[in-house]
């Protein structure tokens, strides 16, 4: 979804086919990330004592397998779309449709705003029980604010 949101809209179906070919490389990287997660999970297994390492090993292995399956599915789906003219047009229409793009942008804006206020509320509450949680949330809030300003400046030059 993120890729679709930030992806520049292809003006023609041929441009879109080329875009899909480019996306295959992204999905290969995702496959690699899944393999790395799985490898880290196996590496952690039995290396450290305690229930935490067991939990982390399981978590990394689970995430790795999930990412591998998802990336293989995306690679296969993308490959089929590229080879089938009807599917290619359907997908191009779906992704280039201005209403769909506006919906994605609004959804991202809303969830960004909601998550910001939730983080701020948690940040205020965290002061009463954990300095670590408070510092982490403070960092995330600052990252959001600084990131927003930087990205807006970059977009301002392009638009």
């Amino acid at each position: 979804m993120l890729m679709k949101l930030f992806h520049k809209s292809a003006k023609t179906q041929e441009e879109f086919r080329a875009d899909l070919a480019g996306r295959q490389k992204g999905f290969m990287l995702l496959l690699l990330a899944g393999a790395v997660s799985l490898a880290v999970g196996f590496f952690l297994n039995g290396r450290a004592d305690g229930p935490q390492s067991e939990y982390l090993s399981g978590l990394y292995c689970g995430m790795g397998v999930g990412i591998i399956f998802a990336s293989l599915l995306l690679l296969w789906k993308n490959y089929r779309t590229m080879r089938d003219a009807k599917k290619l047009r359907e997908q191009w229409l779906k992704e280039s449709d201005e209403r769909n793009r506006a919906l994605n942008e609004k959804a991202f804006f809303l969830i960004g705003a909601i998550s910001f206020f939730v983080k701020y509320a948690l940040f205020l509450a965290a002061g009463f029980f954990s300095m670590e949680v408070l510092t982490t949330l403070w960092g995330l809030i600052m990252f959001y604010v600084v990131g927003f300003v930087v990205i807006r400046k970059i977009l301002e030059r392009r638009m």
Binding site: L93, K94, S96, D97, E98, R99, N100
Partner: peptide, 9 residues
């Protein structure tokens, strides 16, 4: 070159 849903909206 849009979806039917866009025309409906």
């Amino acid at each position: 070159d849009v979806t039917r849903q866009t025309i409906i909206s």
